[in-house]
Design a protein around this nucleic acid. Sequence first.
DNA 1: CCTGTTTCTTGACCTTCGTCAATGTTTTTG
DNA 2: CAAAAACATTGACGAAGGTCAAGAAACAGG
Lengths: 230, 230
Amino acid sequence: MTDCSLCTVRNRAICAGLNPVELAALGKIGRSQKVRAGQTLLWEGDDAPVVANVIEGVLKLGVSTEDGREQIVGVVFPSDFIGRPFGKESPYSVTAMSDAEVCVFNRSAFDEFAGHHPELQNKLLRRTLDELDRARHWMMLLGRKTAEERVASFLLEISERMAGQGCEYHGPNHRFLLPFGRQQIADILGLTIETTSRQLTRMKADGLIDLPSRREVIIVDRPSMEQLAG
Amino acid sequence: MTDCSLCTVRNRAICAGLNPVELAALGKIGRSQKVRAGQTLLWEGDDAPVVANVIEGVLKLGVSTEDGREQIVGVVFPSDFIGRPFGKESPYSVTAMSDAEVCVFNRSAFDEFAGHHPELQNKLLRRTLDELDRARHWMMLLGRKTAEERVASFLLEISERMAGQGCEYHGPNHRFLLPFGRQQIADILGLTIETTSRQLTRMKADGLIDLPSRREVIIVDRPSMEQLAG
DNA sequence: CCTGTTTCTTGACCTTCGTCAATGTTTTTG
DNA sequence: CAAAAACATTGACGAAGGTCAAGAAACAGG
């Protein structure tokens, strides 16, 4: 049981819009849980007993082949929703990319609760539709874009999504902290780590971006980046 | 206005489960529309005034770059839902791949109706979650699989989805009619038409499949195909 | 602050797939 | 039925990106 009124993502997560009574009821079936970076919350193909809200940190949704290739099919930030309501198996694994905190619900209890709260289902539907749009947009990137276009698109998109998170600094140019390592960027873009690294190096050499440290990015020439992204 | 009680996809579409009164109300804001093969119903990026149910035929959801590359991000069959409720712009274009018939609703009227019918929203949510799973699964294919794996995965998936449509024949082996031409298969798989054609030719030569005509496929050796699909 | 470990970059080489072009095969149309 | 159009196959070649390997940079823990 959780006191939702203290929750930091309270007005951005799907819980927003519930009245105090409903919120208390939802709080009863939810509990906060800390997850360490690298820890996997849900395994691809396994029964998924829980759904969750992200309170803090960044997690990835990943799909793997038997021979170890991985594709990251989604990245979730605070206030995002995790898991598969109305379905038993998780179609992908969910792994923390940083230390994180999530608000976990037993899936069937959540399904039951959602069944009686249309407002919540509406929120969930809108979110799912947005996720679907994002996934389809990403399919274009994976199916048709060159390595250069992929990296440019990635940097632009991530800079936008991070902006909503209060995770970026505002310098003279658009500067932010990547929540991913190079291998993870590669797994998001459907490239190898080498190709990803080479593209970043080249963009830096061409003066489009700056890379003050491994995880920092400054987009120096945004118009040109948008050009490249196609 | 439409008489839903005669609709051929009545029990499979999102309308299923509505009571006669509700169905009549929904019928009032829907109308049947014929679409010719190749005709585009919704344009990527444009305001999308409508949502729809597919009654008959096959349609594609496509995203294009400025320089003409296309990626098909979804394919819809009879009883599937088209369009973007709760959003003004269509994030992709919707084009008929065969002559088709759809049941069209004014989007805002549909949104309004859905707002008062939780049961309908629940149906829509479940569908959208399924679509999202399918899209993410496809992202793995586009990001990480080889041409051979892609074609094998495609043939297996399409044979399954067609099975639910009554569009296949049951011969001694699994035989079905493709609703796509070679270029469209390529656009689904993120490949060129040449690579797609070569892979199909090779699979035929290797005795995994047979191609009696342009649009017919027989999966001769399903286990090996599953092997190839990875 | 040093040392071992992890992560990232860079280079050389090779494979897969895309490009361009020619040819063959269905389907459509007058 | 002939001609044209649309669609599909095949081949030769090249380029983008993957693979393998080495070295550099950043980080963590004592």
